[in-house]
Amino acid sequence: MKKILGALSIFVLAACSNKDQFVLNGELINNDQVKKVFLYEGGEVVDSAFLNDDNKFRFRRTAPIPQFYNLKVGENNYFFVLSNGEEVSFKANIKDPSGNYEVIGSEISSKIKEFSEINTRYSAISREIEGEFQMRLKREPSKEKEIRDELFVKYKNNLDQFSKEVLAFANRNVNNLAGFYAISSLDPAEYEAEMMAYADTIKDKFPKNAAVRDFVTHMAELKPLMVGQKAPDFELMDQKGKTVKLSDFRGKYTLVDFWASWCVPCREENPNIVKQYNTYKDRNFTILGVSLDNNQAAWLKAIKDDQLTWTHVSDLQAWNSKAAELYKISSIPASFLLNPEGIIVAKNLRGQKLADFLEKTL
């Protein structure tokens, strides 16, 4: 009788322990290279496992609340949301160019797989467009601009369609972390309002998840910089060491343009900004260039080479620029268009969008 009770107690303990961890069982098909796989959490390796002779592996870990994990298999990455009590099976053919895989036992991870399939589909289209660009450029190198402009329309349409599917998926999954995973793939410059609304919706749903908390906090920090808000004032020195305040430009439509001499997309956009400045500078429009350079000579040379004849300021602190920190700049080019009262009326207008807005407004 004691032996039976002892065996039962061991069984009960084992059953309890299963609820205090998750198990991820994996199998690789057509694998002849990968010997070891890695499990990441929050960008850091938290575990690793060698494959056995059957190309199988297993992870056991503790996750009291659902957490994001990235399984790195060779050059491939697979994403999961896992928590205690789950026993998940994963299978992938690492030679499948589509990147398809199987996951069973985790409802949220299955939803992430659904989103990954959406992402894979649109990424393939982007690669096709890039391939077409390279092929046509090789045949007609003198027509680079025409080819680039033509294919950019296709690229932008593909990106817009992808973003619509992202929003639809995120809204369908607002009550689980797969929705948050999807919304994080959007470009904040293009979908700021949608991302802020999403942050407001989920802010109390996952209070213990660090990634969600960081996202909600960041979106809250951006609210004072939304269209319709008064632009925060700042002061920096211009090329000659004179202090310039943003508020000095009140009374005019002002484009606050964050850029740098080393930023290729910025330099590519500069001819368009020059064109708009020359067209509208006598119609109550001006520009304040804010450089994220840390090399004064390079900054001044770029101003001269690109013929940027408006006011420029910089503290030569690169990403630590006071103005960049104030405006939460995480990538450049970035811009804010202010009305004569200093209210933000548009953000990140480039190319034809800037021209259309100025023509309509001024």
Rank of each mutant, 00 (worst) to 15 (best):
D204G: 10
K154A: 09
L354S: 01
M195A: 00
Q134R: 13
N25V: 03
D200M: 01
L225D: 06
P340V: 04
S9Q: 11
Q276K: 03
Y78W: 08
A49Q: 13
A189C: 07
I10A: 12
E130C: 03
R267W: 04
L292W: 09
N76Y: 14
D293R: 06
L137F: 12
V216A: 07
D315H: 02
L349H: 08
N76T: 13
K245C: 06
F79S: 15
S163A: 15
A318S: 15
F115D: 01
I108R: 00
N294D: 15
K353T: 12
V81A: 09
L151D: 03
A15D: 07
G99I: 01
S163R: 02
N84I: 08
I125P: 00
L349G: 10
P97E: 02
E132F: 07
V216Q: 05
S185Y: 10
F22M: 06
Q161L: 14
R213G: 04
A168W: 05
K154R: 13
T361K: 11
Q276G: 04
G179F: 06
E144Q: 15
Q352D: 14
I147F: 04
L159A: 15
I202T: 04
E87H: 12
A193W: 05
P265F: 07
E41K: 14
R283N: 12
N25W: 07
F152E: 14
L177M: 02
K72I: 12
K252R: 11
